[in-house]
């Protein structure tokens, strides 16, 4: 369960990147976060993950406030940032083991999780190599694996499918579906409307820091008869 209540973020005392944003995401849902460049998506995700502080409002993850109880709140989620270039000098396996230690995953469980994830993402032969030698897509995969290693109940992903090959993209989407079906939550930002259409139970459309629409895609389509999703998105953000 994610609760975002009247959250505002102001940069340099002037620019309102996010303005009174409220969202309540129930368990068992995949929610897509859509908006044009600079709409406030990444700022919102950064506030949800404790990277940025909210200037107003609060964010609760499974009931834990990220502002007042950050350590417990951070254990609830796994975050995949938009840039996967982390700790490039470490080997893949070293990175995964570090993440497992930070999230206190025991040895037996981490070993089986790593084996399982490496097979699913075709990374078994790459674990012993430095992340520096990986392609962009492989770096994206190792970051996703690092997040999934502690089996967080909430997944927060910033453009997670960018750079992934079709097979890995399919695997990740399937994982997201399974995660939601098991009663947990997936919240991810994307520019690809087709992905949102096929994958999401609900979408939140944001522009200039404000939520313009939050609900199911069917409901949105019902409001704009005969229009494609792309046209609807442009229409909503234009008038937002």
């Amino acid at each position: 369960m994610i609760e975002i209540s009247a959250v505002t973020k102001i940069y340099n005392g002037k620019v309102k990147a996010v303005n009174q944003l409220s969202l309540s995401i129930e368990d068992g849902k995949i929610v897509g976060f859509i908006g044009p460049n600079g709409a406030g998506k990444t700022t919102t995700l950064k506030m949800m993950t404790g990277i940025l502080d909210c200037d107003e409002g609060y964010i609760r993850l499974n009931g834990h406030d990220i502002g007042t109880n950050p350590l417990l709140a951070k254990k609830q989620f796994g975050f995949v940032p938009d840039n996967p270039d982390v700790f490039l000098r470490l080997k893949g396996i070293e990175y995964l083991n570090l993440m497992a230690d930070i999230y206190e995953v025991d040895s037996l469980e981490r070993k089986s999780r790593i084996t399982e994830l490496a097979e699913a993402f075709s990374m078994t032969a790459a674990l012993n190599d430095k992340i520096l030698s990986y392609s962009h897509g492989m770096r994206q995969k190792i970051v996703v694996m690092g997040v999934l290693i502690h089996q967080p109940s909430i997944w927060i992903l910033d453009e997670p499918l960018t750079g992934l090959d079709p097979q890995s993209s399919y695997v990740l989407k399937e994982m997201m579906r399974k995660h939601a079906q098991s009663g947990k939550t997936v919240f991810f930002s994307t520019h690809v409307l087709e992905v949102a259409e096929k994958l999401c139970d609900q979408v939140a459309i944001i522009n200039r820091g404000e939520i313009l629409y939050f609900g199911t895609l069917e409901e949105l389509k019902g409001r704009y008869n005969q229009m494609s999703l792309e046209e609807i998105f442009l229409e909503v953000t234009r008038h937002g």
Binding site: I93, E94, L96, N97, L98, A100, D101, I102, E104, V105, D106, S107, R110, K111, I114
Partner: peptide
């Protein structure tokens, strides 16, 4: 490679 350690040691 997957032996667990305390987070502070690993860090």
């Amino acid at each position: 490679s997957t032996r667990s350690s305390k987070a502070i040691v690993s860090y």
